[in-house]
């Protein structure tokens, strides 16, 4: 027993790579978040709906509406646009992750439903030039 504890004690003295790893990861995450935050601050103009990578519809954020999106394998998501923001309210899948992703309104923000392979992205607004280039 004593010997085993000794093993672990010896291990403990090695340099702490954990702290370096944690710091590096936190820094990377912070950078990603900051870059994303500054690129996508403007409110968007329309919601783009993609199913399996193909854009199937666009809805302007200025008009309130409720639509049902037909996703992969018969899955359904209900998209609600209200007061300039988009959310998903009713989903056919059990985990309902896309409902929990909440409301989005800024250009570049997304709601993803993996089982139905649906991606809803807010686009347009001030940063349209950038988005236009990318498309």
């Amino acid at each position: 027993m004593g010997k085993k504890e000794g093993d672990i004690g010896k291990n403990r003295q090695k340099p702490c790579g954990e702290i370096v790893l944690a710091a590096a990861v936190l820094l990377t995450a912070l950078c990603c978040w900051l870059v994303w935050h500054f690129l996508h601050r403007e409110p968007g103009a329309w919601a783009s709906v993609e199913v399996e990578g193909l854009e199937t519809a666009r809805y302007p954020l200025t008009e309130d509406c409720t639509v049902v999106i037909e996703g992969y394998d018969g899955g359904r998501n209900t998209l609600v646009i209200e007061g300039g923001s988009v959310r998903v309210t009713d989903v056919s899948c059990p985990d309902r992750l896309c409902e929990k992703q909440g409301q989005i309104s800024g250009s570049g923000e997304t709601i993803v439903c993996l089982p139905n392979r649906v991606v809803i992205t807010v686009r347009g607004g001030e940063g349209t030039a950038l988005d236009g280039l990318a498309e």
């Binding site: 995450a29 912070l30 990603c32 993609e50 993996l114 991606v119 992205t121």
Partner: peptide, 20 residues
């Protein structure tokens, strides 16, 4: 790759921190 959209990379920071 499945949803064929790069939009998912928006989650990278959250997933990095949660994995940590």
């Amino acid at each position: 790759a499945v949803v064929e959209s790069a939009a998912l990379f928006y989650y990278v920071p959250v997933l990095l921190v949660s994995g940590l």
